[in-house]
Amino acid sequence: MIKNKRVIGEIAVVALIFLGVAGGALQQIATSFAAQNASSGGPLKNAAMFPQLLIAILVVLGCVQIGMSIRTHRLSNGPATGETRPDARSESAVPGEPPDPAEPRAVLHRKAIICLVIFAAYLGGVGILGYPVATFTMLFAMFFVLGTSPLVASIVAFLAMVTVGIVFGMLLNVVLPIGIIGISFPS
């Protein structure tokens, strides 16, 4: 069952990401490129030549990869094939560490998703609320979700917001988001 899920996931990744991008690009070449008169001709005018080559590579390799995923799945009867490729594993978070005994996977998974939502909300809100308010709120909320007490969370969030604001806004002359209600970080 777990193995089946894995194979479906493998195929979905290839189909959605690689073949999806290839398909989208092909559609753009047929419409937008053609409308700009840039999908044919010599090297000066043909902007589609190189992308077309890459689309072909993506499609061919994508199909090979799908075929390989299915074959590995059929051939395997040992435990969890494909989950432990030594090389690719190396890029993952903590090599060789056993799962955290204190918190079950499901809880951690939920926390990760909540953090992701907070982060997305921050990116959406920073242009409206401005850097100080949005950053403080994001940091406070995330500290809290990850298990810090509200008091500590608010103090650390405030200090981090001010410190980073000073370093970037003043020393590095970056104009931090001001927000439409106009609360700015002074510079």
């Binding site: 100080p132 001010v162 003043m170 020393l171 970080f185 002074p186």
Partner: peptide, 19 residues
């Protein structure tokens, strides 16, 4: 740089002002 640092120190006191 110097201008930024002096200003930064001043702002530590009043960290947020309305523009």
């Amino acid at each position: 740089l110097f201008r930024s640092i002096t200003k930064g120190l001043a702002v530590l006191a009043v960290s947020v002002t309305a523009s």
